[in-house]
Design a protein around this nucleic acid. Structure first.
Lengths: 133, 133
DNA sequence: GAGTTTAGTTTCCTAAAGGAAAGCGACATT
DNA sequence: AATGTCGCTTTCCTTTAGGAAACTAAACTC
């Protein structure tokens, strides 16, 4: 087990800061990680991705897929069926994100639990309750 | 070692998707994680944080600190010195982000290495995109 | 009472993210 | 010829993020 209490040195913090900024630069935005997660189910077509993500518009989806292609997380394949079939598939490189996604998922799960628990314990905490005049 | 090749089931993907969305909802934006990382060095004052992050303006810093306070990652302490001293300090809850930050940092480091390596290997590679006709 | 320091706030602005709705090109079916 | 499907693109918006510059309140010092 780690201590988790001690402060980090300035040098370590700065190094962490830069590395995390590098990561965030590539993974920024609302859709990059969700998209990658959706494609972990297997290769999908444009409309399938759209359905699986629920809210995304074709414009945004198109842009995000291009970004992910540029960064080599996703490969786009064209099949000359009729009508044309295009699939998007994760690259091996995208698998390097596995642990990041795992930890984000774990954290998201426990965070939600915490929120629910808090809501039960202090239900009307500091809400502006209406005045019964 | 994990396999890392098999596809995930639809149910698992959807669960992951929701959990990661929950996490991203709280950690979104350019500054939340960098700010937390900066405070891992120890409690800091407003101007100290500003210097350590380099580019952030007081308005944004103020807003981000309020967000982090609301989500219980940071505690704001007021000391009645003169002039008044105010410090921002990580809460125990912020330590639950340790692994997330670790993995993001690791990924950021290897991603930067990869970029540098790629730049050496294919310096002017403008890709003539292949068509699978 | 003028100036200093800390910790911000306020005003004004630009750029980027995000989205709704419609259109488009290349087929194929009816 | 008309209609439909797929994989987008285009146009036109609104919203949010982010920032520069100036200002402020409180308490002190000179």
């Amino acid at each position: 087990m780690r201590k988790g209490r001690a402060h980090l040195s300035k040098e370590v913090c700065t190094a962490n800061l830069n590395a995390v900024k590098d990561a965030l630069y590539v993974l920024n935005g609302k859709w990059k990680l969700p998209l990658i997660i959706s494609l972990q189910e297997g290769p999908k077509r444009f409309n399938e991705i759209q359905k699986s993500l629920g809210e995304i518009t074709p414009k945004i989806l198109s842009k995000e897929l291009k970004d992910l292609e540029l960064n080599e997380f996703v490969i786009r394949r064209v099949f000359s069926t009729t009508p044309v079939t295009i699939t998007y598939e994760l690259t091996p490189y995208s698998q390097t994100l596995e642990k990041v996604i795992d930890e984000l998922r774990n954290w998201g799960l426990q965070h939600r639990e915490r929120l629910v628990a808090n809501r039960r314990n202090k239900p009307i905490a500091d809400e502006p309750v209406l005045d019964a005049t």
